[in-house]
Design a protein around this nucleic acid. Structure first.
Lengths: 147, 147
DNA sequence: CAATACTCGTTGCGTACGCAACGAGTATTG
DNA sequence: CAATACTCGTTGCGTACGCAACGAGTATTG
């Protein structure tokens, strides 16, 4: 295949990012949540009681982004924030019963976008895309770290 | 391959978007430009004299985003804005000599990120990733339009 | 063990971006 | 051809996000 006049990968990344942001903003609005918060809930549904720092690392965001997302989730009663006893600089974030109650719906919205976005791909294509994205994301994260 | 505990595609999209935003913000800073503007220049380097509307369509952004990006490029002397004579609602955006002068460097920065991001992929993998992203972006854009 | 250096989370600031409402200009329609 | 409906770009508003500087707490080091 020739490399003629091809849009860069980053062009599609940006396009899909904006589409997802728009879709998720709309779907999560009834939950008093934006697309900036749902990712943090996803992580907490997988493992409860993480610290700001651990969430920051898992989502590859800036720590200030984590502070603000957790603050909002706390304000909306989705999480509680507990200071760690053995190190008072750290906290643990726990899901509230309200967050657990809405877990299924909240996960479905996320899965809905995933399904919608990849609806035109075969199972094999989804696997390939997933693996390639994972490969470059891991590679670049490591690279960014070393500078 | 089994579908166990796989992060969604959107997780990687977000991660790569933020990495790119950070990289490009830094690299374009000496040009008095952010990563929000360079994409518009890319389009104009390909074809000069486009309208706000055409840029909006090609980049899949909101029209207000286009207004603001062009405004900034104009302020920094990268483009001129000419009202169309046959329809005064429309404008044409033209590159200035200053923008043409810096074309090579500006394109190199963008290509630099593209190269860096895909450095761990073979040529064939890049082709596959490109085609899959293009496929879902086109599909989803069409879908979003119909709602 | 006191000075110094790190670490975790916060705050101020700036940028990118979408959505909704708008206004001037153009097209349509009775 | 005047009322009405569209179209292109703008403006106000809100959200997501990174970076840099900071402060309280903890670890290190002479």
């Amino acid at each position: 295949m020739k490399q003629v006049n091809r849009e860069p990968i980053s062009y599609y990344i940006g396009h899909l990012y904006r589409l997802g942001a728009s879709y998720l903003t709309q779907k999560y609005a009834p939950y008093a949540m934006g697309f900036g918060q749902y990712q943090f809930l996803m992580q907490l549904y997988q493992q409860d009681g993480l610290s700001h720092e651990e969430l920051t690392a898992r989502l590859h965001v800036d720590k200030s982004t984590t502070t603000r997302a957790i603050e909002k989730l706390h304000k909306e009663q989705y999480v509680t924030i507990q200071q760690q006893e053995n190190d008072k600089r750290k906290y643990r974030i726990y899901l509230t019963p309200a967050a657990r109650e809405k877990q299924t719906e909240i996960l479905q919205i996320s899965a809905g976008w995933e399904g919608k976005m990849t609806a035109c791909l075969s199972e094999e294509e989804k696997d390939v895309l997933y693996l390639l994205l994972k490969k470059i994301a891991l590679f670049d994260a490591k690279d960014a770290q070393s500078h």
